[in-house]
């Protein structure tokens, strides 16, 4: 096992001891440009992110809504590449040896780069996990199995369409945590009802001990808090990249103050998640 193996588990263990959910912050690597994206990334742990989900931009993000589509396009326009994304993780690791980083994206850029080369370099950069939207269990031989062999967690999406029969298939070869998509749909769509999330959470718990994080459609600290009462982790993505979208100028840059605002928003979401269980108990 490599040194990178274990950050995700250590993170959830620590949070379980504190009786709170993990706050997972998503940004797209290279958005709005490689330099400022690095600054945002480096600032996420201090702002309250427990786990970072870093989007690998793709030209054709089929499962993403308008916010993340736009952030991917900003990043690609600014010259972001897959190698550039790995370099960002490497630079981040110079000052942060413990915050887990999960790369999220689509398979083609990795396939084109070469699976073996990608995995070697990802381990070297300090990547902990992968979420590849268009690789279902049926295609596990492509990347999932080699990733697990390389010590990288392969995190799978569960959705409202995942029935019991399917659940067993999806849980096989899943590691790190499970990502429950609270609505059938694209990123940034409406949030699923808390009751439905809780039911799904229990259904999953009967079959797996892995932590369950919930994402898709969580936009405010209050949303984040309510999901944090029932889930092991809360992912916010579109609402964060929308903060960048709102600030970016014609040259594709934001100001230092904007970076502060983005991280401030992340902080308010983190506070929401941290206060969730107290609120729930009150």
């Amino acid at each position: 096992m490599t040194e990178a193996a274990g950050r995700i588990e250590r993170c959830f263990d620590a949070l379980r001891a504190q009786d709170r959910a993990a706050f997972v912050a998503f940004i797209t690597a290279g958005d709005p440009n490689p330099e400022q994206s690095q600054q945002v990334l480096n600032g996420l742990p201090a702002a309250g992110a427990d786990i970072i989900e870093l989007g690998m931009p793709f030209s054709d993000p089929m499962a993403d809504g308008p916010s993340i589509q736009a952030s991917s396009q900003r990043a690609l326009k600014a010259g972001q590449t897959l190698r550039g994304t790995l370099d960002m993780v490497k630079a981040f690791r110079e000052n942060d040896a413990e915050t887990p980083i999960v790369l999220m994206g689509y398979y083609n850029p990795i396939y084109h780069y070469g699976v073996d080369r990608f995995l070697t370099e990802a381990v070297d950069a300090g990547v902990d996990g992968l979420i590849i939207v268009d690789l279902p269990p049926e295609e596990d031989a492509e990347l999932c199995e080699p990733a697990i062999a390389a010590g990288i967690r392969f995190i799978r999406l569960l959705t409202p369409t995942t029935d019991d029969a399917r659940l067993d298939t999806v849980l096989q070869n899943t590691s790190g945590f499970l990502y429950y998509v609270s609505v059938a749909g694209i990123t940034g769509a409406a949030m699923g009802a808390q009751q439905a999330i809780e039911t799904a959470r229990q259904r999953i718990a009967e079959k797996s001990a892995l932590p369950v994080v919930v994402g898709f459609g969580i936009k405010t600290p209050d949303h984040a808090a309510s999901v944090g009462q029932v889930a092991d982790g809360v992912v916010v993505g579109s609402a964060i990249v929308d903060q960048i979208a709102g600030a970016v100028d014609e040259s594709g840059a934001i100001t230092d103050a904007d970076i502060g605002h983005v991280l401030g928003f992340v902080g308010s979401l983190a506070d929401g998640v941290r206060s969730a269980r107290q609120r729930g108990a009150a």
Binding site: Y107, P136, E139, L157, T159, T161, T162, V170, V181
Partner: peptide, 12 residues
């Protein structure tokens, strides 16, 4: 060929 789709679509 193959089936490279999001999990939401797999059951479909």
């Amino acid at each position: 060929g193959g089936r490279y789709v999001a999990e939401t679509l797999m059951p479909l």
